[in-house]
């Protein structure tokens, strides 16, 4: 087992969230456990407030859980500090929903992509330039884009930049937090194909957080359904989509709009 979550609990101190007046003091995560193998994609689905983003951040070592552990190769990475944490950051990376705001608007694409190389490997300027060129090519972007700024690129291109940056550290797990939700439908498929190719090439695993169930069906091998910070149900894609056991899962699946109009069914 590559990555495992055991009994993760997390409660946030009273947040003054304007758009969620109902569950101010409810725990964000309650007893969440999951497992992720090598070369596998686990989709974490649920509606807003389910806690999937919080889980993603715990796994990516951006938030510390109150209780429970995240085990990478049987080693607890959920509460590391200093140099140790820095080492393990390379193994678990994250890409965000809004690619545009996940990049420093004042730095060029090339600088953003090569920053991890500077931090972790102390790479020289020449080494970084070469690596950036290679990475841009790998994600299907033109090498000349290294000197452009985020605002000059489209959403799809920016998400590829974010992927390139994550790749520069050769991660074993990438937490994808709604990576294609903000993209146009015609571009979503491009980014998903890229992620699939990279997985086949490098054997990476993905923790794929999304609310879009149709993407899950095609992209993931296993699914975990969450609601209000708890795991409702989990299993393979076939199990969950063909024979869901929990009522919530059933209502979720029933709400997906049918792409075939009634008159043609």
């Amino acid at each position: 087992m590559l990555l495992r979550g055991d009994g993760i609990h997390k409660t946030f101190a009273r947040q003054r969230r304007l758009f969620r007046s109902d569950n101010e003091s409810a725990p964000a995560l309650t007893n969440v456990s999951f497992s992720l193998r090598e070369n596998e994609t686990l989709a974490v689905v649920g509606e807003s407030g389910a806690g999937k983003s919080t889980l993603g951040r715990v796994v990516a070592q951006l938030i510390e859980p109150d209780a429970g552990q995240v085990m990478l190769d049987d080693r607890d990475i959920s509460r590391l500090r200093g140099q140790e944490q820095l080492t393990f950051r390379k193994s678990v990376q994250m890409i965000f929903q809004d690619a545009h705001s996940s990049l420093d608007p004042r730095r060029t694409i090339g600088d953003s992509i090569s920053e991890p190389m500077l931090i972790h490997f102390g790479a020289s300027r020449a080494e970084r330039r070469t690596a950036v060129r290679d990475l841009l090519g790998r994600v299907g972007l033109d090498a000349g884009m290294a000197d452009t700024l985020p605002r000059q690129l489209s959403g799809g291109q920016l998400q590829r930049v974010a992927i390139a940056r994550a790749l520069s550290m050769d991660p074993r797990v990438i937490v994808c937090d709604e990576p294609v939700s903000a993209l146009d439908v015609s571009v979503q498929a491009q980014v998903l194909n890229l992620l699939k190719d990279l997985q086949a090439e490098r054997g990476m695993s993905y923790l794929f957080i999304t609310h879009d169930l149709s993407v899950v069906e095609a992209f993931a091998s296993r699914v975990m359904v969450m609601r209000s910070g708890q795991v409702i149900e989990s299993g393979s894609v076939d199990e969950i989509f063909d024979s869901p056991t929990h009522d919530y899962t059933k209502s979720l699946l029933a709400s997906i709009p049918n792409p075939v109009p009634k008159s043609l069914r």
């Binding site: 439908v185 015609s186 571009v187 979503q188 498929a189 491009q190 998903l192 194909n193 699939k196 149709s214 993407v215 069906e217 095609a218 992209f219 894609v237 989509f241 792409p259």
Partner: peptide, 13 residues
């Protein structure tokens, strides 16, 4: 381009 189960590759525009 609507993804569907069992797709090895997604159709793109």
């Amino acid at each position: 381009t609507r993804p569907s189960r069992g797709d090895h590759r997604f159709a793109t525009i």
